[in-house]
Design a binder for these strands. Structure first.
Lengths: 148, 148
DNA sequence: TGTTAATAGTTGATTTTGTAACTAACAACC
DNA sequence: GGTTGTTAGTTACAAAATCAACTATTAACA
Protein backbone atom coordinates (compact mmCIF):
# COMPACT_ATOMS: atom_id res chain seq x y z
CA UNK A 1 0.00 0.00 0.00
CA UNK A 2 3.06 2.24 -0.14
CA UNK A 3 2.17 3.60 -3.55
CA UNK A 4 4.53 5.80 -5.48
CA UNK A 5 3.12 9.22 -6.17
CA UNK A 6 4.21 11.90 -8.54
CA UNK A 7 3.12 14.65 -6.21
CA UNK A 8 5.32 16.18 -3.57
CA UNK A 9 3.96 18.54 -0.97
CA UNK A 10 7.03 20.66 -1.52
CA UNK A 11 5.75 21.32 -4.98
CA UNK A 12 2.37 22.57 -3.93
CA UNK A 13 2.79 26.30 -3.97
CA UNK A 14 0.46 27.25 -1.11
CA UNK A 15 2.19 24.72 1.12
CA UNK A 16 5.66 25.73 0.06
CA UNK A 17 4.85 29.41 0.49
CA UNK A 18 3.55 28.73 3.93
CA UNK A 19 6.64 26.80 4.95
CA UNK A 20 8.90 29.53 3.66
CA UNK A 21 6.83 32.21 5.37
CA UNK A 22 6.82 30.37 8.67
CA UNK A 23 10.48 29.60 8.66
CA UNK A 24 11.62 32.99 7.52
CA UNK A 25 9.63 34.89 10.10
CA UNK A 26 10.55 32.81 13.12
CA UNK A 27 13.54 34.79 14.26
CA UNK A 28 11.90 38.16 13.75
CA UNK A 29 8.83 37.00 15.63
CA UNK A 30 11.08 36.12 18.52
CA UNK A 31 12.28 39.71 18.68
CA UNK A 32 8.99 41.57 18.82
CA UNK A 33 7.62 38.97 21.15
CA UNK A 34 10.54 38.98 23.56
CA UNK A 35 11.28 42.69 23.47
CA UNK A 36 7.77 44.10 23.46
CA UNK A 37 5.45 41.19 24.15
CA UNK A 38 3.71 41.88 20.87
CA UNK A 39 1.66 39.61 18.66
CA UNK A 40 1.93 39.53 14.90
CA UNK A 41 -1.18 41.68 14.55
CA UNK A 42 0.23 44.26 16.93
CA UNK A 43 3.58 44.42 15.23
CA UNK A 44 1.79 44.98 11.95
CA UNK A 45 -0.38 47.78 13.21
CA UNK A 46 2.67 49.40 14.75
CA UNK A 47 4.50 49.27 11.44
CA UNK A 48 1.58 50.62 9.46
CA UNK A 49 1.43 53.65 11.69
CA UNK A 50 5.20 53.98 11.77
CA UNK A 51 5.55 53.87 8.03
CA UNK A 52 2.45 55.61 6.75
CA UNK A 53 1.73 57.88 9.69
CA UNK A 54 -1.58 58.72 11.33
CA UNK A 55 -4.46 56.70 9.96
CA UNK A 56 -7.70 54.98 10.89
CA UNK A 57 -8.26 51.32 11.65
CA UNK A 58 -10.14 51.01 8.42
CA UNK A 59 -7.24 52.25 6.37
CA UNK A 60 -4.97 49.78 8.10
CA UNK A 61 -7.42 47.08 7.16
CA UNK A 62 -7.39 48.08 3.53
CA UNK A 63 -3.64 48.07 3.33
CA UNK A 64 -2.96 44.95 5.35
CA UNK A 65 -5.99 42.86 4.51
CA UNK A 66 -6.22 41.97 8.20
CA UNK A 67 -9.75 41.46 9.47
CA UNK A 68 -11.20 44.36 11.38
CA UNK A 69 -11.60 42.43 14.60
CA UNK A 70 -7.91 41.60 14.63
CA UNK A 71 -7.11 45.23 14.09
CA UNK A 72 -9.56 46.36 16.72
CA UNK A 73 -7.94 44.12 19.31
CA UNK A 74 -4.41 44.99 18.30
CA UNK A 75 -5.23 48.69 18.51
CA UNK A 76 -6.84 48.23 21.91
CA UNK A 77 -3.76 46.52 23.26
CA UNK A 78 -1.32 48.96 21.73
CA UNK A 79 -3.40 51.76 23.22
CA UNK A 80 -3.39 50.27 26.71
CA UNK A 81 0.35 50.01 26.53
CA UNK A 82 0.70 53.62 25.39
CA UNK A 83 2.16 52.80 22.01
CA UNK A 84 -0.51 54.80 20.26
CA UNK A 85 -3.19 57.42 20.82
CA UNK A 86 -6.71 57.40 19.45
CA UNK A 87 -8.48 60.54 18.42
CA UNK A 88 -12.02 60.80 17.19
CA UNK A 89 -12.81 62.72 14.05
CA UNK A 90 -15.22 65.61 14.87
CA UNK A 91 -16.90 65.50 11.52
CA UNK A 92 -17.48 61.76 11.51
CA UNK A 93 -17.42 60.41 14.99
CA UNK A 94 -17.26 56.82 13.78
CA UNK A 95 -13.68 57.44 12.71
CA UNK A 96 -10.73 57.31 15.02
CA UNK A 97 -7.32 58.50 14.01
CA UNK A 98 -4.51 56.39 15.34
CA UNK A 99 -1.06 57.75 15.87
CA UNK A 100 2.09 56.45 17.48
CA UNK A 101 3.21 58.00 20.76
CA UNK A 102 6.87 58.63 21.39
CA UNK A 103 7.00 55.25 23.02
CA UNK A 104 5.44 53.74 19.93
CA UNK A 105 7.84 55.58 17.65
CA UNK A 106 10.76 54.30 19.66
CA UNK A 107 9.54 50.72 19.50
CA UNK A 108 8.86 51.11 15.81
CA UNK A 109 12.30 52.45 15.06
CA UNK A 110 13.89 49.70 17.07
CA UNK A 111 11.96 46.99 15.29
CA UNK A 112 12.44 48.68 11.95
CA UNK A 113 16.17 48.33 12.40
CA UNK A 114 15.78 44.70 13.26
CA UNK A 115 13.52 44.15 10.26
CA UNK A 116 15.93 45.78 7.86
CA UNK A 117 18.86 43.77 9.10
CA UNK A 118 16.81 40.64 9.05
CA UNK A 119 15.55 41.20 5.55
CA UNK A 120 19.07 41.88 4.37
CA UNK A 121 20.20 38.62 5.90
CA UNK A 122 17.49 36.72 4.10
CA UNK A 123 18.34 38.47 0.85
CA UNK A 124 21.98 37.63 1.30
CA UNK A 125 21.21 33.96 0.89
CA UNK A 126 19.92 34.67 -2.61
CA UNK A 127 21.43 35.93 -5.81
CA UNK A 128 20.45 39.42 -6.96
CA UNK A 129 18.35 37.90 -9.70
CA UNK A 130 16.63 35.44 -7.40
CA UNK A 131 15.87 38.22 -4.99
CA UNK A 132 14.39 40.39 -7.70
CA UNK A 133 12.23 37.65 -9.17
CA UNK A 134 11.12 36.45 -5.77
CA UNK A 135 9.81 39.81 -4.63
CA UNK A 136 8.14 40.55 -7.90
CA UNK A 137 6.43 37.18 -8.03
CA UNK A 138 5.35 37.33 -4.42
CA UNK A 139 3.69 40.65 -5.06
CA UNK A 140 1.87 39.10 -7.94
CA UNK A 141 0.72 36.16 -5.83
CA UNK A 142 -0.24 38.37 -2.91
CA UNK A 143 -2.79 40.02 -5.15
CA UNK A 144 -3.81 36.83 -6.88
CA UNK A 145 -7.51 36.70 -7.43
CA UNK A 146 -8.94 33.23 -7.21
CA UNK A 147 -12.05 33.97 -9.20
CA UNK A 148 -12.64 31.34 -11.85
CA UNK B 1 4.30 64.02 11.83
CA UNK B 2 3.69 62.23 8.51
CA UNK B 3 7.35 61.41 8.07
CA UNK B 4 8.63 59.91 4.87
CA UNK B 5 10.14 56.52 5.31
CA UNK B 6 12.25 54.45 3.01
CA UNK B 7 10.77 51.22 4.23
CA UNK B 8 7.77 49.54 2.73
CA UNK B 9 6.11 46.60 4.39
CA UNK B 10 5.74 45.04 0.97
CA UNK B 11 9.49 44.81 0.85
CA UNK B 12 9.89 42.98 4.11
CA UNK B 13 10.24 39.41 3.00
CA UNK B 14 8.55 37.66 5.95
CA UNK B 15 5.55 39.94 5.55
CA UNK B 16 5.42 39.59 1.81
CA UNK B 17 5.77 35.83 2.03
CA UNK B 18 2.97 35.68 4.49
CA UNK B 19 0.67 37.77 2.33
CA UNK B 20 1.39 35.61 -0.69
CA UNK B 21 0.90 32.43 1.32
CA UNK B 22 -2.40 33.62 2.76
CA UNK B 23 -3.79 34.82 -0.49
CA UNK B 24 -2.70 31.85 -2.54
CA UNK B 25 -4.14 29.28 -0.17
CA UNK B 26 -7.55 30.85 0.35
CA UNK B 27 -9.38 29.10 -2.43
CA UNK B 28 -7.88 25.70 -1.70
CA UNK B 29 -8.70 26.06 1.97
CA UNK B 30 -12.28 26.63 0.98
CA UNK B 31 -12.38 23.27 -0.75
CA UNK B 32 -11.10 21.00 2.00
CA UNK B 33 -13.13 22.91 4.51
CA UNK B 34 -16.38 22.80 2.56
CA UNK B 35 -16.05 19.30 1.15
CA UNK B 36 -14.63 17.49 4.15
CA UNK B 37 -14.87 19.88 7.08
CA UNK B 38 -11.12 19.63 7.52
CA UNK B 39 -8.68 22.00 9.14
CA UNK B 40 -5.31 22.86 7.69
CA UNK B 41 -3.61 20.46 10.07
CA UNK B 42 -5.92 17.65 9.02
CA UNK B 43 -5.49 18.26 5.35
CA UNK B 44 -1.75 18.16 5.85
CA UNK B 45 -1.75 14.90 7.75
CA UNK B 46 -4.01 13.39 5.10
CA UNK B 47 -1.60 14.41 2.37
CA UNK B 48 1.44 13.16 4.20
CA UNK B 49 -0.12 9.74 4.50
CA UNK B 50 -1.46 9.86 0.98
CA UNK B 51 1.86 10.77 -0.54
CA UNK B 52 4.38 8.99 1.62
CA UNK B 53 2.25 6.10 2.82
CA UNK B 54 2.05 4.53 6.26
CA UNK B 55 4.03 6.43 8.85
CA UNK B 56 4.01 7.52 12.49
CA UNK B 57 2.95 10.84 13.92
CA UNK B 58 6.55 11.58 14.69
CA UNK B 59 7.63 11.14 11.10
CA UNK B 60 4.86 13.46 10.00
CA UNK B 61 6.18 15.98 12.48
CA UNK B 62 9.68 15.75 11.09
CA UNK B 63 8.56 16.26 7.55
CA UNK B 64 5.99 18.94 8.13
CA UNK B 65 7.50 20.78 11.09
CA UNK B 66 4.04 20.85 12.65
CA UNK B 67 4.01 20.66 16.42
CA UNK B 68 3.17 17.27 17.86
CA UNK B 69 0.04 18.44 19.63
CA UNK B 70 -1.39 19.70 16.38
CA UNK B 71 -0.63 16.39 14.76
CA UNK B 72 -2.04 14.43 17.66
CA UNK B 73 -5.32 16.25 17.44
CA UNK B 74 -5.49 16.10 13.68
CA UNK B 75 -4.84 12.36 13.78
CA UNK B 76 -7.50 11.89 16.44
CA UNK B 77 -10.07 13.67 14.35
CA UNK B 78 -9.14 11.91 11.12
CA UNK B 79 -9.36 8.64 13.04
CA UNK B 80 -12.82 9.37 14.40
CA UNK B 81 -14.00 10.12 10.91
CA UNK B 82 -12.52 6.89 9.58
CA UNK B 83 -10.04 8.56 7.28
CA UNK B 84 -7.16 6.65 8.83
CA UNK B 85 -6.36 3.67 11.02
CA UNK B 86 -3.88 3.54 13.86
CA UNK B 87 -1.84 0.47 14.60
CA UNK B 88 0.58 0.06 17.45
CA UNK B 89 4.06 -1.27 16.83
CA UNK B 90 4.59 -4.50 18.83
CA UNK B 91 8.27 -3.91 19.32
CA UNK B 92 7.89 -0.35 20.56
CA UNK B 93 4.44 0.22 21.85
CA UNK B 94 4.94 3.98 21.96
CA UNK B 95 4.80 4.01 18.19
CA UNK B 96 1.62 4.04 16.21
CA UNK B 97 1.53 3.51 12.49
CA UNK B 98 -0.99 5.63 10.70
CA UNK B 99 -2.48 4.62 7.40
CA UNK B 100 -5.28 5.92 5.22
CA UNK B 101 -8.46 3.90 4.96
CA UNK B 102 -10.24 3.61 1.64
CA UNK B 103 -12.29 6.57 2.67
CA UNK B 104 -9.11 8.49 3.41
CA UNK B 105 -7.59 7.46 0.09
CA UNK B 106 -10.64 8.67 -1.72
CA UNK B 107 -10.61 12.00 0.00
CA UNK B 108 -6.90 12.29 -0.62
CA UNK B 109 -7.22 11.57 -4.30
CA UNK B 110 -10.04 14.02 -4.62
CA UNK B 111 -8.12 16.79 -2.91
CA UNK B 112 -4.96 15.86 -4.75
CA UNK B 113 -6.73 16.57 -7.99
CA UNK B 114 -7.91 19.89 -6.70
CA UNK B 115 -4.43 20.73 -5.46
CA UNK B 116 -2.83 19.92 -8.79
CA UNK B 117 -5.31 21.98 -10.73
CA UNK B 118 -4.96 24.79 -8.28
CA UNK B 119 -1.21 24.74 -8.36
CA UNK B 120 -1.28 24.75 -12.14
CA UNK B 121 -3.53 27.76 -12.08
CA UNK B 122 -1.16 29.63 -9.82
CA UNK B 123 1.76 28.65 -12.00
CA UNK B 124 -0.05 29.84 -15.06
CA UNK B 125 0.12 33.39 -13.81
CA UNK B 126 3.92 33.19 -13.91
CA UNK B 127 6.49 32.75 -16.62
CA UNK B 128 8.35 29.46 -16.73
CA UNK B 129 11.45 31.15 -15.45
CA UNK B 130 9.62 32.91 -12.64
CA UNK B 131 8.04 29.66 -11.63
CA UNK B 132 11.34 27.85 -11.58
CA UNK B 133 13.13 30.52 -9.56
CA UNK B 134 10.22 30.92 -7.17
CA UNK B 135 10.08 27.26 -6.20
CA UNK B 136 13.79 26.94 -5.89
CA UNK B 137 14.09 30.02 -3.73
CA UNK B 138 11.15 29.07 -1.55
CA UNK B 139 12.76 25.73 -0.85
CA UNK B 140 15.88 27.54 0.16
CA UNK B 141 13.95 29.85 2.46
CA UNK B 142 11.90 27.04 3.93
CA UNK B 143 15.08 25.51 5.22
CA UNK B 144 16.64 28.83 6.18
CA UNK B 145 18.46 28.54 9.44
CA UNK B 146 18.34 31.69 11.48
CA UNK B 147 21.41 30.89 13.54
CA UNK B 148 23.71 33.93 13.69
C1' DT C 1 18.20 -5.34 38.27
C1' DG C 2 17.23 -0.65 39.62
C1' DT C 3 17.45 3.99 38.78
C1' DT C 4 17.55 7.84 35.69
C1' DA C 5 16.95 9.76 31.26
C1' DA C 6 14.76 9.98 26.85
C1' DT C 7 10.95 9.37 23.56
C1' DA C 8 5.99 9.07 21.40
C1' DG C 9 2.04 10.72 22.04
C1' DT C 10 -1.95 12.85 24.84
C1' DT C 11 -4.37 16.06 27.76
C1' DG C 12 -5.61 20.45 30.10
C1' DA C 13 -5.26 25.32 30.75
C1' DT C 14 -4.55 29.57 28.48
C1' DT C 15 -4.21 32.54 24.57
C1' DT C 16 -5.47 33.82 20.09
C1' DT C 17 -8.38 33.70 16.19
C1' DG C 18 -12.74 33.54 13.55
C1' DT C 19 -17.69 34.38 12.97
C1' DA C 20 -21.61 36.70 13.78
C1' DA C 21 -24.14 39.80 16.01
C1' DC C 22 -24.08 44.16 17.85
C1' DT C 23 -23.71 49.61 18.77
C1' DA C 24 -23.16 54.10 17.28
C1' DA C 25 -22.91 57.24 13.79
C1' DC C 26 -23.71 58.92 9.25
C1' DA C 27 -26.11 58.96 4.40
C1' DA C 28 -29.88 58.85 1.22
C1' DC C 29 -34.17 59.26 -0.01
C1' DC C 30 -38.99 59.99 0.29
C1' DG D 1 -38.11 64.77 9.73
C1' DG D 2 -38.47 59.67 9.56
C1' DT D 3 -37.41 55.42 7.58
C1' DT D 4 -33.95 52.41 5.50
C1' DG D 5 -29.33 51.34 4.38
C1' DT D 6 -24.27 51.70 5.18
C1' DT D 7 -20.18 52.18 7.55
C1' DA D 8 -16.49 52.08 11.57
C1' DG D 9 -15.52 49.76 15.11
C1' DT D 10 -16.54 46.58 19.26
C1' DT D 11 -18.00 42.57 21.70
C1' DA D 12 -19.52 37.79 22.71
C1' DC D 13 -19.06 33.22 21.86
C1' DA D 14 -17.13 29.30 19.53
C1' DA D 15 -13.15 27.22 17.29
C1' DA D 16 -8.34 26.57 17.08
C1' DA D 17 -3.48 27.14 18.36
C1' DT D 18 -0.02 27.26 21.96
C1' DC D 19 2.46 25.77 26.00
C1' DA D 20 3.31 23.00 29.77
C1' DA D 21 2.52 19.13 32.23
C1' DC D 22 1.38 14.49 31.96
C1' DT D 23 1.32 9.02 30.83
C1' DA D 24 3.31 5.14 29.05
C1' DT D 25 7.03 3.00 27.23
C1' DT D 26 11.82 2.15 25.99
C1' DA D 27 16.93 3.07 26.52
C1' DA D 28 21.18 3.66 29.17
C1' DC D 29 24.02 2.29 32.34
C1' DA D 30 25.79 1.95 37.03
Amino acid sequence: MTEKHDFDLQNFLPYLLNQAAEESSLAFQQVYKDRYGMLRTEWRVLFHLGIYGRMTAKEIGQRSKMHKTKISRAVARLGERRFLTRQQDDRDRRLEYLELTNLGQTAYRDLLGVAKTYDAKLSASLSAEEDRVLRSVLRKLASFDTAD
